[in-house]
């Protein structure tokens, strides 16, 4: 092969490379620009909609974190401060005492505090809560529904695909803008402020 022919071949290859390179660059940037046009403005976070939640217990088991980033959050404004709290006590509890055999919570994460007759206040210890939703179910079926499952965003690592959302039977998880990270059923935080 002559030197000139070799040079020609190299030039041709270079030209093809260059053409493909710039068209690929334009293509990739174009796709990026088109998607950016319809992209969400801010960051998105996972939100659990308690209105859809069926308290199946998968939040406790399916999160990539152990314990789960889903926690029970107590909306005190909705709480009736009941003595016989259906979120705290098992059904058919004979004595309303804090004995472990009476508690619905498997990790004893709910603290029951006497306020004044006949009212009691219930605190969730987030370090103990595993997000199983047993108390939520109890509170929703006989009480006000002030105990609600929510994604705790100081713990959530915001996975690209939430492994709880993937297996949620009620499709209660969705990605929302960060300012709407929490959603409470029957209660609007903004109205209060």
């Amino acid at each position: 092969m002559s030197k000139a022919g070799e040079n020609n071949r190299l030039d041709r290859r270079k030209f093809i490379n260059k053409t493909v390179r710039y068209s690929l660059a334009i293509g990739v940037c174009g796709v990026g620009a088109v998607l950016a046009g319809k992209a969400s403005k801010g960051e998105l976070v996972w939100q659990l909609d308690p209105a859809k939640c069926v308290q199946c217990g998968r939040c406790a088991t399916n999160c990539v974190l152990t314990p789960s980033a889903v926690k029970c959050i107590h909306v005190y404004d909705m709480c009736g401060y009941c003595d016989l709290c259906s979120g705290y006590f098992r059904v058919n509890t004979k004595d309303l005492t804090t004995g472990a055999e009476n508690q619905l919570c498997p990790t004893s994460a709910i603290e029951r505090k006497f306020i004044e007759d006949p009212y009691f206040e219930y605190h969730i210890d987030e370090d103990l809560c595993i997000g199983c939703g047993k108390c939520v179910k109890g509170c929703a079926s006989f009480g006000n529904g002030s105990l609600q499952l929510q994604v705790n965003h100081s713990l959530c690592v915001n996975c690209n695909q939430c492994s709880i959302a993937r297996d949620c039977p009620a499709e209660a998880f969705s990605r929302v803008p960060a300012d709407k990270a929490y959603s409470f059923k029957g209660f609007n935080r903004d109205e209060l402020i």
């Binding site: 960051e43 976070v45 959050i73 107590h74 909306v75 005190y76 404004d77 709480c79 206040e121 605190h123 929510q150 705790n152 965003h153 100081s154 713990l155 959530c156 915001n158 960060a178 990270a181 929490y182 935080r189």
Partner: peptide, 9 residues
């Protein structure tokens, strides 16, 4: 009553 805590993302 204590506030309902909602940690920021």
């Amino acid at each position: 009553q204590p506030p309902t805590l909602t940690p920021e993302p």
